[in-house]
Amino acid sequence: MDSNNGKSPRTVTEEIENLTLSPYACKSTATKGRKVYEPPCDIRTEFQRDRDRIIHCNSFRRLKHKTQVFLIPKSDHYRTRLTHTLEVSQIARTIARALRLNEDLTEAIALGHDLGHTPFGHDGERTLDQLVPDHFRHYEQSKRVVEVIEKNGQGLNLTSEVIDGILCHTNATAKTLEGQVVKFSDKIAYINHDIEDAIRGGVLRQEDLPKGPIEVLGKSKSERITTLIKSIIANSTNLIQYDEVTRQAHDELRKFMFDKVYFAPSTNAEKGKACHIVEYLYKYFIGSPEKMPELYVGFAKEYGLERAVCDFISGMTDDFAVDYFKELCIPKSWSY
């Protein structure tokens, strides 16, 4: 610490933030804090600690075996929920750095934004939403993961700003610009990377892409991502936004992907089976809650059985859900 005139590395980082970040950035010293107070770390700022907690938690590791769009693909090159998360983080950090926002806060939100996603992607999410009496949203579940489920029911005790960004990454507007950046980056990532996966999977051809948006954004994945990032950087001050031409091109390309890929028969051929697995497991654990791990049995008593079953199933990887279904439904003497 002598080289820092007796100051801790955290204090030096905080001073650098206060000197160099935009007036619109959320500085580490301005955090609203955690639900349960913790003494500051000598080395890391509060947002750096949140990033590290997310990276080291069980839910983050399980993302590597959760579907992005294509169910259990054979190729190693299709995106998983983990690689999607890393790509969102990279795009978000690029934007945050250019706008002089808090990169550590941005990264923490990006890495945690999909922790509550179900197995089998949005199809698993929709299935749980149809089954549970209340409702199920993956962004609300991501918040629940970091607040309640992780660390054997203790939660990660993250800062208010990170939790807000995680909750608001899909529909709502985050209170910080860093959270808003992640929301934009999530869409940039999944639209353009899903195009690449769809072409690889034979669902799309390059020439199928709509001409108008491609002329504005670019023919290649790299060109499109660069165009979108540049538009945000050029048009954002106290609000994250595109210029109007870029926004319209982005929205048209996104609509094309929903029409031609996300809800296309070729993409959805196996999804009915995946939805059946989620539905079967949900009904099974509703009828036999004692079969769930002890943690979720405790959640059932505290939060209600339906919510606890959603907690358990949404935390499963694709492989775990399939194997559990096989264990319950297929005789062990049969080969499969």
Results as ranks from 00 to 15, higher is better:
residue 249 A to M: 04
residue 215 E to I: 03
residue 45 T to I: 10
residue 10 R to Q: 12
residue 148 V to S: 03
residue 86 L to T: 07
residue 151 K to N: 15
residue 111 L to D: 01
residue 99 L to N: 09
residue 55 I to G: 06
residue 157 N to D: 08
residue 331 P to E: 02
residue 189 A to L: 08
residue 103 E to V: 05
residue 191 I to M: 12
residue 281 L to W: 08
residue 121 G to D: 10
residue 284 Y to K: 02
residue 24 Y to E: 04
residue 130 Q to M: 13
residue 90 Q to H: 11
residue 240 I to K: 05
residue 3 S to T: 07
residue 77 H to W: 05
residue 88 V to M: 07
residue 333 S to G: 11
residue 4 N to L: 15
residue 213 P to Y: 02
residue 114 D to N: 10
residue 293 P to V: 09
residue 192 N to W: 00
residue 188 I to G: 00
residue 331 P to F: 08
residue 61 R to S: 15
residue 270 E to Q: 11
residue 122 H to L: 14
residue 106 T to R: 05
residue 333 S to I: 15
residue 65 H to K: 11
residue 62 R to K: 15
residue 16 I to W: 10
residue 11 T to D: 15
residue 182 V to D: 06
residue 288 S to D: 06
residue 23 P to I: 14
residue 26 C to T: 15
residue 16 I to E: 11
residue 159 T to A: 11
residue 228 L to P: 01
residue 224 R to W: 03
residue 184 F to Q: 09
residue 311 D to N: 14
residue 169 H to T: 05
residue 286 I to D: 00
residue 7 K to Q: 09
residue 144 R to Y: 12
residue 77 H to C: 04
residue 239 L to H: 13
residue 12 V to M: 13
residue 63 L to P: 09
residue 168 C to E: 10
residue 289 P to N: 05
residue 105 L to M: 00
residue 98 A to N: 14
residue 42 D to I: 08
residue 287 G to R: 13
residue 319 D to V: 09
residue 36 V to L: 08
residue 79 R to G: 03
residue 69 V to M: 00
residue 217 L to G: 04
residue 42 D to M: 05
residue 297 V to A: 05
residue 146 V to A: 04
residue 268 N to R: 13
residue 44 R to Y: 12
residue 275 C to I: 02
residue 69 V to L: 02
residue 231 S to R: 07
residue 124 G to D: 00
residue 102 N to Y: 06
residue 163 I to A: 03
